[in-house]
Nucleic acid binder design. Structure first.
Lengths: 204, 204
DNA sequence: CCCTAAAAATGACCGCGGTCATTTTATATA
DNA sequence: TATATAAAATGACCGCGGTCATTTTTAGGG
């Protein structure tokens, strides 16, 4: 017969996540071992793998939180900005900064950003979906209401535009994680150029 | 005093690479251990790391060869094609197929495609550069001589066009490596749409 | 040809992520 | 409350990538 999950489960899971959160604060993921997380959370190592599929699966929760922070900030921050393009650049760079700062974070993002929701931790896919929705509605708004410095092209639907933007952001993060793009300014410049070329409608 | 490297060096390095080539034929990289490569090549494991920085560094040579094969095939194959766009799609999908078939291959490609040539094995960066050159000259030719099904846009230089194409191909490979893009046909369709939108000049 | 110093090869060893047979704990029922 | 059993926790263990003090081989000067 089936019994329902005990409340211990949620507690230990929370303890593990809290330990992971603390230990990864400011340190690269690959310097934080599963043994260390087990020790910090006062739980046997084996238990980590009972609650999470693997190290990536565990840390994807941490990445999810960081991703969510970007979304939240985008949604709440009403700071006036020079233009729609600048706003998009600003938000994109927040993501690039997050992803390119830690190889393992980028790794997790790439592994899970493409996967079907079934094999990914819900927090991560939720955050990712929220981010994609935010981008989608941003572009929708831009197209409908207009915005500086140019009008969006109309020969592609918003979803297609968004997927292109994502592609540029992702590759920018990859290039920056290696050292192909050295300075942050170069990264911004590249994205600005690509965004213009991808999003701009025919000249008025 | 400095002595020059012995000829043994090249021999063992070649033996190791040959073993790696054999063992990875048709099998995912992560099923082939360094111990296995050492055993197959008749060399101590420690020697592998004397000749190559790490497993990625070793296998990047194998990836380089596969990459080079794509370049070579593109350069020699004079098969008549329906259009420039089809040719580009065809060649891009060859790369996508290569990268998405094995996680570790994709990993190596992403790690090294961005890195400065100094920290990457020469064969790999050579193959990558050859591929980029091939794309560049393909696009240059398209722009100058024209070609179906449309003329290339002229508001971006060829290098910028190429970087965009690479971005779309890379993300397509990532999506396909996970299961975001299930069928190969969907992948082709996505790329076709993105290539058109990215490359097409203003309607005549 | 021998001797010596540098170059190359070696394999025991380490920490890591991950597994699993076993033990401990909680809960439903009598 | 006592008992049976499912759920949860445990930690010794494994194979992996990678290291390094030691040994073996090679090349060049006397």
């Amino acid at each position: 017969m089936n019994r329902k999950t005990q409340k211990r489960t949620h507690e230990t899971k929370a303890r593990i996540l809290e330990a992971a959160r603390q230990l990864t604060e400011g340190k690269p993921f690959d310097t934080v071992s599963m043994d260390a997380i087990a020790r910090q959370s006062g739980v046997a190592k084996g238990s980590l793998f009972a609650h999470f599929t693997d190290k990536s699966g565990l840390l994807s929760h941490v990445v999810a939180e960081r991703l969510q922070a970007i979304v939240d900030h985008w949604e709440t921050d009403g700071t006036a900005r020079g233009s729609k393009l600048e706003e998009l650049l600003d938000r994109s760079m927040a993501l690039v900064d997050l992803l390119s700062a830690d190889r393992a974070v980028l790794q997790i993002y790439l592994d899970y950003s493409g996967a079907t929701s079934s094999n990914v931790s819900e927090p991560f896919s939720a955050s990712l979906e929220a981010l994609e929705n935010r981008l989608f509605s941003f572009l929708s708004h831009w197209r409908e209401k207009g915005g500086a410095p140019f009008a969006l092209r109309t020969d592609l639907d918003v979803a297609a535009l968004a997927s292109g933007v994502s592609a540029f952001v992702t590759t920018a993060a990859i290039y920056r994680a290696c050292d192909r793009i050295v300075s942050r300014a170069d990264c911004v410049a590249l994205l600005q150029c690509q965004f213009r070329a991808w999003l701009q409608g025919p000249a008025a």
